[in-house]
Amino acid sequence: MADLLTHVLVPYVVLTVTSWWVEVPRQWVVVAMCGAAIPDLVKAKIVVFGLLDVRSVFGVDLAFAGFNRLGGALLLAAAVAVFFGDRWRRAYAFIAFGGLSSLLVDGLRVYADGRADFYLYPLTWWRPPTPSLYVTSDPRVLGTALTVSIAVFLADRYRRHGRLLPDGEASAAE
């Protein structure tokens, strides 16, 4: 899987660019970014077990495996969405969008036999082909994500304000 920072930047870029044509409120973009972090909770076991200084607790580590699979991501999105009150449907859509974008990004990473992991579980045990585009440890992955995000951030700011700097700084510079 790509690193968590790259994961959350992907829905930021996609939804911010989308918002140039269709209205996407900023607070929902942020919800999708959080959604993108949810499949990475699969790694929470490293933190939890690391702190407890144990390798596994009653097979709990096995149970974590569902987090970054299609079914698990969709269920977790729902578990979080119920805490958005009347807006749960919209919350679900954005959280699930973020989660699915992370799975898609993960599905592009290197596999020596050219096929990705069982990301579509439990829909199917079929391993989709992967272009083996990247390995997470390659700093160029994060570098690309950051560069594109900053470009989109500045372009978005320019579209909204007609200038790259926020009003305050711009007027201070004048």
């Binding site: 149970a63 569902g66 729902a78 805490f83 069982f118």
Partner: peptide, 24 residues
């Protein structure tokens, strides 16, 4: 109800994970 639904869903995720790990 909200907490109950969330708990059931989370239990479902752990159930899926266990099934996944044992059948992978």
């Amino acid at each position: 109800v909200r907490i109950l639904v969330a708990l059931i869903l989370v239990a479902g995720v752990f159930g899926l994970g266990t099934h996944y790990s044992t059948h992978r």
